[in-house]
């Protein structure tokens, strides 16, 4: 029996070390992960995925910990995937999100995994969705994806979650910030954490105004609610849970399939782009071609145009010359 088959067998029968190993393979781009996920594919899609994102220090981990408590109180199992940044210089990372979830490690209904972003810039890692798929296949019911601390335009978590919860806290800008594009628009639920601090009410009011001023609703009819809480003292958590649950009900009312299909398609697109890039750049020799063209004094746009044209010609030849010009 292959190592992949062994891990697959143990994963679907609830062995946590098998889940842990599958995630390591996903992270390491180890081909054995594909074998595991292919075998477990039918089991993926049963869990509910909530992406928790927001700027550094907004309280994502603390709020995640509160959500774990609430789900455990309702006897639902929880998987947490917490992403922290990798160093652009050394590739190393300090993964400290577990500290905020201290009491959960000995709970058999909770599985927490820390992940370094490893060069991805969208708030999650390349392997994040794969890891959550593995948790889903394992049978964890509530899946929480905590992103790195993000700025305004890192929102890859949208492609990883059913519901996106954006956590903010007061003291980081005026009402105009709330009108800007990006992270605030992708929120299915907006949460003002540290609601006991001064400025929190104002921030919530600004966000509500920004939502109400939208001329085009980005979520197909879902009006993003703004909720406030103090995760550190557990105050207002029930409001956050209620908003999340409302969004789930809304999606499950005939919208979930389309939502997830778009997500799966985006997943395929991303993985394909990566694979095509690897294939052409290294295996197909584009890297060396580009080096030569640049050395011949070509401008970088011309290098790109040359290589793409060459690919088109070869694709047409391979297709028997029948493919039409685009």
């Amino acid at each position: 029996m292959s190592a992949a088959q062994g891990v697959l067998d143990r994963l679907v029968t609830g062995d946590r070390t098998a889940l842990a190993r599958a995630i390591t393979w996903a992270e390491s781009a180890d081909p054995r992960f594909r074998a595991v996920l292919t075998g477990a594919n039918e089991r993926v899609g049963r869990g509910w995925r909530v992406g928790i994102t927001g700027p550094p220090g907004a309280g994502k981990s603390t709020l995640t910990n509160e959500l774990i408590s609430a789900h455990r109180a309702a006897e639902r199992s929880v998987g947490v995937l917490a992403v922290d940044p990798s160093s652009p210089f050394t590739g190393g990372a300090l993964l400290g999100d577990r500290i905020r979830m201290d009491g959960r490690t000995s709970d058999e209904g909770v599985f927490i995994r820390s992940m370094a972003s490893r060069g991805s810039h969208g708030g999650i890692a390349r392997a994040t969705v794969d890891a959550v798929d593995a948790m889903d296949a394992f049978g964890l019911e509530e899946l929480l994806i905590e992103t790195v601390g993000v700025g305004q335009a890192e929102y890859d978590v949208v492609g990883a979650a059913d519901t996106v919860l954006v956590v903010l806290c007061p003291g980081a800008g005026d009402g105009v910030q709330a009108l800007k594009s990006g992270i605030l628009e992708v929120a299915d639920v907006l949460c003002v954490n540290k609601a006991d601090l001064s400025g929190a009410e104002r921030l919530a009011a600004d966000l509500e105004e920004a939502v109400s001023l939208r001329d085009v609703e980005p979520h197909g009819g879902w009006v993003t609610p703004v909720v406030s809480c103090s995760a550190g003292t557990s105050e207002g958590i029930e409001d956050v849970l209620a908003a999340l649950s409302l969004h789930r009900t809304w999606l499950e009312d005939g919208r979930l399939e389309a939502h997830r299909e778009a997500r799966r398609l985006a997943q395929v697109h991303r993985a394909l782009a990566e694979a095509v890039d690897r294939e052409l750049w290294e295996a197909f020799g584009w890297r060396e071609r580009a080096v030569r063209l640049l050395a011949d004094g070509a401008a970088h746009y011309d290098v790109v145009a040359d290589l793409i044209e060459e690919l088109r010609v070869q694709t047409r030849t391979a297709a028997g010359g029948g493919a039409s010009e685009r």
Partner: peptide
């Protein structure tokens, strides 16, 4: 260790041996 390119999980103070081992297992 981070500066030498490793990915380091720090679990904080006051851990029982079981908590450390379980975290090590989940984090593989």
């Amino acid at each position: 260790l981070r500066d030498h390119g490793m990915e380091v999980v720090y679990t904080g103070l006051h851990q029982t041996p079981a908590m450390i081992a379980e975290a090590a297992a989940q984090e593989d």
